[in-house]
Amino acid sequence: MPTYDYHCANNQQTLSVQHSMKESLSTWGELCQRTQQDPGKTPLDTPIERVISGGIALPIPTAIPQLPMAGCCGNPTSCGGH
């Protein structure tokens, strides 16, 4: 299951929680319940926002190798004789 970070602008706290991709949390109370965090003095209905993180970085190829194009005879340049 993926891990998501949520930020509360009211108390400047960011918490991490695991849930399915289809699920989303919207309040400080939901987040505290899922993470078993004490909500403190922040109202439970305070909105939170999902923080966009870097995720997994995959290398991007700088050059795509060119494959030879084969003609009908298998000659990489062309058939020429047909």
Rank of each mutant, 00 (worst) to 15 (best):
T46F: 06
K41M: 10
G71K: 00
R50V: 14
T14Q: 09
P47H: 07
S20I: 07
G55L: 07
A70C: 06
Q36P: 00
Y6I: 07
P47Y: 07
Y4L: 10
W28M: 05
L44M: 10
P76K: 03
S53C: 13
S26P: 00
M21S: 15
M21K: 15
P43C: 01
N10P: 11
G81L: 11
L67N: 08
T3K: 15
T46A: 08
P39F: 00
T35F: 01
P61H: 01
H19G: 02
G40V: 04
S16T: 09
T42H: 00
Q33R: 14
M1A: 05
T3W: 13
H7N: 09
P76L: 04
K22W: 06
S20F: 10
G54K: 11
R34V: 02
L58P: 11
W28S: 06
A63D: 01
L67K: 09
S16W: 05
L15Q: 03
C79M: 03
G40A: 07
S24N: 08
C72V: 14
C32S: 09
L15M: 07
G55F: 05
Y4V: 11
M69T: 13
I56Q: 14
T46P: 11
A63R: 06
C72I: 14
I60A: 01
G40C: 05
L25N: 04
T3H: 12
V17G: 05
T27P: 00
M21F: 14
I48M: 03
T14E: 10
T27I: 01
I56V: 15
S53F: 12
V51N: 08
P39E: 01
D38K: 14
L31C: 02
E49H: 02
C8V: 10
P65V: 01
G81D: 13
D45H: 08
Q66G: 10
T77E: 04
R50E: 15
I60Q: 04
I56C: 14
P59V: 04
C32R: 04
T27V: 00
G29F: 09
A9I: 11
H82Y: 10
A70G: 02
Q18P: 00
Y4F: 15
P65S: 04
N75C: 04
K41H: 08
A70H: 09
I60D: 02
P2F: 12
N10Q: 15
H7R: 09
G80T: 05
D45P: 09
S16H: 08
G81N: 10
R34Y: 03
I52G: 07
W28Y: 06
T77H: 04
L44H: 07
C73V: 01
H19N: 05
R34N: 02
P2W: 11
K22A: 08
L67Q: 10
L25D: 05
V17T: 08
S24Y: 00
